[in-house]
Amino acid sequence: MKILRDEDLNDSGLMAVAIDALEGAFFARVDNRLVSPPRHHVSFPGQGDLVFTVGGVLGDKPLAGFRVYETFGGADQIVAVWSADEARLKGICVGERLGSLRTGAIGGIAIRHLSAPDARSVGIIGSGAQARTQLAAAAAVRKLNLVRVYSRSEENRVAFAEEMQRTLGLAVEPAGSARDAVRDADIVISATTSRTPVIHAADLKPGVHINTVGPKTRDGHELGLDIADAAAVIATDSPEQTRAYASPFFLAGSGHEHRMTDLAEIIAGRASGRRSPEDMTLFCSVGLAGTEVVVASAVLDVVSASA
């Protein structure tokens, strides 16, 4: 039984491992073999919550496990994975890196199935951990040649550009505004904590694909609703989760909430994705609960094989 920490998950090749594992999980979701009930919160008044997700995959080699993270102000989480048929604890991942890897990989799968096949440029709003893994995932599924990044802190966006250019081996430039970052981009990644729109449909070119990261509510969202108006396809990794938030999802009441397609259905060919090079597509990532277990299992296998 292995215990992995953040420093064990720095191999850039693990993003491709996570993407492949999650693509399999989305196929399992369509076949009703993915176990992913909604999150469960346990409150500690005055301190925060412990948040639990349970998940796994049924089939020849069934997996089961859970993740728990806290809202006390830190970032650590624990993911435990069992080989269900062997009744064996495969391992535990501790830290925040696995969660970022999982979220980035889901974004990469959306880009693989919704962006134009010849997409080469990316505009990123945000320069934090999620922006880093989203870009790494985009680079894993598309042959990128240019990235522009904007965040409110000039220092942070310059540091992001230098780091990601070095890490990914492609041109990454800081932009002077959100509009400058996205206006010519084939793929837009919105990974901010802004509670007011920072980009609108008029800022984007025809045929663009947009990824959002994390829960967006009617009280706070960084995308203008005119982007949903313009999108030919709106997809999410968990329609159930968009309906489970305490605060209504940002598309609730807009007329677009019923347009959201399950990404798994698009991957499996049961729902339409992009139909035209001019289509704008929008993916709302809310974090399909339980999929951390699938990613952790694949990562544990790779790390164990290389040990």
Rank of each mutant, 00 (worst) to 15 (best):
K2Q: 15
I3V: 13
I3Q: 11
R5C: 13
E7A: 15
E7Y: 15
L9H: 00
S12C: 15
L14P: 01
L14F: 05
M15F: 00
V17C: 04
V17T: 08
A21L: 03
A21S: 10
A25K: 01
F27W: 11
R33K: 10
V35Y: 05
P37C: 13
P38K: 12
P38Q: 09
H40P: 05
G48Q: 02
G48Y: 01
F52Y: 04
T53V: 00
G55R: 00
P62Y: 04
P62I: 09
A64P: 06
F66A: 04
F66M: 09
T71M: 06
A84R: 07
C93D: 05
G95W: 11
E96I: 12
E96V: 10
T103A: 08
G104I: 01
G107N: 08
G107D: 03
G108D: 01
G108Y: 00
G108W: 01
I111H: 13
R112V: 09
H113E: 14
H113Q: 14
L114Y: 02
A119D: 02
S121G: 11
G126C: 04
S127C: 15
G128H: 06
T133H: 12
T133V: 09
L135I: 13
A136E: 10
A136V: 13
A137K: 05
A139Q: 13
A140E: 05
L144R: 04
V147L: 08
R148C: 03
R152M: 09
N156L: 12
E162L: 13
R166L: 00
T167R: 10
T167P: 06
L168K: 07
L168R: 05
L170C: 11
R179E: 12
R179A: 03
D180W: 08
R183C: 10
V188H: 04
S190T: 14
A191Q: 05
T193R: 14
T193A: 15
T196A: 14
P197F: 03
V198W: 05
I199L: 06
H200N: 15
A201K: 03
L204Y: 00
H209M: 06
I210Y: 02
G214K: 04
K216G: 08
K216I: 08
G220K: 09
E222P: 10
G224C: 09
L225N: 04
D226R: 01
D229A: 09
A232Y: 10
I234E: 04
D237V: 09
E240A: 14
E240Y: 09
S247P: 13
S247T: 12
F249W: 12
F250P: 02
F250E: 06
A252H: 07
G253H: 07
S254T: 11
S254N: 12
H256F: 08
R259F: 07
R259S: 07
T261L: 11
T261K: 12
L263A: 07
L263V: 03
E265L: 15
I266R: 00
I266P: 00
I266A: 02
I267R: 00
A271M: 08
S272F: 08
R275N: 07
P277M: 07
E278R: 08
D279N: 02
V286Y: 00
G287P: 11
G287D: 06
V293W: 02
V294K: 01
V294C: 03
A298N: 00
L300T: 02
L300G: 04
V302A: 11
